[in-house]
Computed example of a mutant assay.
Amino acid sequence: MLTQPEYRATRCTRYRYRYSECSRCAEACPHEAVELSDEGIRISASACRNCALCAAACPTEALLADNLPRIEVLKRTAKLPEVTFACAPSELNGDEIVPCLGGLDAAMLAYLTSRGVAVTLAGTQHCAECSHGVRGEARLGLHLEAVEALRGIVGSQKWAEISVPDEGETEPGKAGHDPSRRHLFRRFVGRGADQLTRPISATEVQPVPLKAIRFAAPFSTAGRELLQILFEAAPQDHVPLPAYPALYAAKVGIQPGCTACEACARACPTGAMQIRESGTAWELGFQFSRCVGCGVCVEVCQPHVLHFQDEMENLAKAPEPVILHALGKQRCTRCDRFFISPAPGGNLSDLRRGRCGFFVHFWLKESLMLTVPMNNFQICRLVPRPQAEAQHR
């Protein structure tokens, strides 16, 4: 009996931020079994065929497929000289039977081949007949392209090859032949894969109210940790790594205009966006080694100053976050509470104190910055002066 992937809501960007437009799992599903909503997603038990493509497409690992346990598979195969992955619909034999070859993500394939494990993908000639085939083949192309990029950055001297059997030469119970990577990429890369998964750009995001951000404890993903392992012994003077959607890693940049609303840090599921405070300063930090490129920080950013950069740095674990934005704290002369000034070293003559009480705020020429409690945490927002004055009467 087929089962459906387990859904972990607190890892889902649509659950963490109800206005998120992430649809990676639905776009990867070939059976239209994933239903999207402001509360997250729901998987239709009647439509799902448990191909695990939705789980492979999710950068935050909100979906967990029991028929493709990635860590257990890696433990069984990492010490073998070679391993054959066969897709279940093809009925071919292999060391590991997987529901769809497109469910083998780039982190898994790179981890094995970087350790000298030769990987054979058996059953690719069955994609045209398989109900998973169109989406599965495109997902596999994305992952192979990402592995090739990693191979070129880290160095391929010790990396083993990924191969597929020739079309027409594979029978049930047998897999053979080892074509070149060029032949492999001609078959799989560039088959509409860019339409399945792509980074979110700031121009695609529409402004929405800052509400319904569900806060939960940050977590790390197994795929991101596997990518970091590849760079533990890598040279530090490597060329920058281009951003690939299937790598589930990204480098976030910032433009001028941050309002210090902290929404990006509240919505970030992995803790890559961090708020660091002291008695005198407020800082927005970015922990690159925790970022999986889900894009929820870019979506939730109201002034649209956050963006994904085109290139990434070393994927190894970074000891300290990069400070994207820093502001100095000031003390309110009426309530004695701290507030954040609009810019480091800002001119306090531009600030006009107002009543505090339930709100902590300061006047900034034509606007009022309000800090209000929402969902057990505080959010700052800019309110036009006439509206703010009306609220405080």
Results as ranks from 00 to 15, higher is better:
158 K>V: 10
284 L>N: 04
372 V>K: 09
160 A>F: 07
185 F>I: 09
248 Y>Q: 12
79 K>Y: 15
134 V>A: 06
330 Q>Y: 14
292 V>C: 00
8 R>M: 08
320 E>I: 13
105 D>M: 11
173 G>A: 07
96 E>P: 05
284 L>H: 08
145 E>F: 09
213 I>A: 01
247 L>G: 07
127 C>M: 10
167 E>F: 15
265 A>G: 03
152 G>W: 11
113 T>D: 09
15 Y>F: 09
162 I>F: 14
32 E>H: 02
368 L>V: 12
97 I>K: 01
77 T>M: 09
273 M>K: 01
87 C>R: 05
386 P>E: 02
328 G>A: 13
364 L>G: 05
353 R>A: 13
117 V>S: 03
65 A>H: 05
171 E>D: 08
283 E>P: 08
277 E>W: 06
297 C>G: 03
194 D>V: 05
137 E>N: 05
270 T>V: 06
12 C>L: 07
243 A>L: 11
4 Q>M: 06
3 T>Y: 01
373 P>C: 03
73 V>G: 02
5 P>V: 00
157 Q>V: 11
292 V>L: 01
351 L>C: 11
31 H>Y: 07
161 E>R: 14
112 L>F: 11
299 E>S: 01
386 P>W: 01
257 G>C: 13
315 L>T: 05
104 L>I: 10
56 A>E: 15
279 G>D: 14
27 E>Q: 10
154 V>N: 02
46 S>T: 09
77 T>F: 06
28 A>C: 08
311 E>Y: 15
112 L>P: 07
114 S>V: 09
358 F>E: 11
26 A>E: 00
61 E>Y: 15
176 G>P: 13
13 T>A: 00
88 A>R: 07
17 Y>V: 05
88 A>Y: 05
192 G>H: 04
321 P>A: 01
24 R>D: 02
371 T>Y: 12
20 S>Q: 13
240 P>Q: 08
351 L>I: 14
298 V>L: 05
385 R>L: 13
358 F>W: 09
84 T>G: 12
332 C>E: 08
157 Q>S: 11
271 G>L: 04
169 E>M: 12
233 A>C: 10
231 F>S: 02
40 G>P: 05
68 L>F: 08
308 F>I: 08
229 I>D: 06
172 P>T: 15
71 I>E: 10
267 A>N: 01
167 E>T: 11
160 A>M: 05
51 C>I: 00
365 K>S: 06
214 R>P: 00
323 I>S: 04
173 G>S: 06
354 G>Y: 09
254 I>N: 02
246 A>L: 13
155 G>Y: 15
39 E>Y: 00
362 F>P: 00
71 I>F: 09
367 S>R: 15
219 F>E: 10
131 S>E: 04
329 K>M: 11
384 P>H: 03
334 R>C: 04
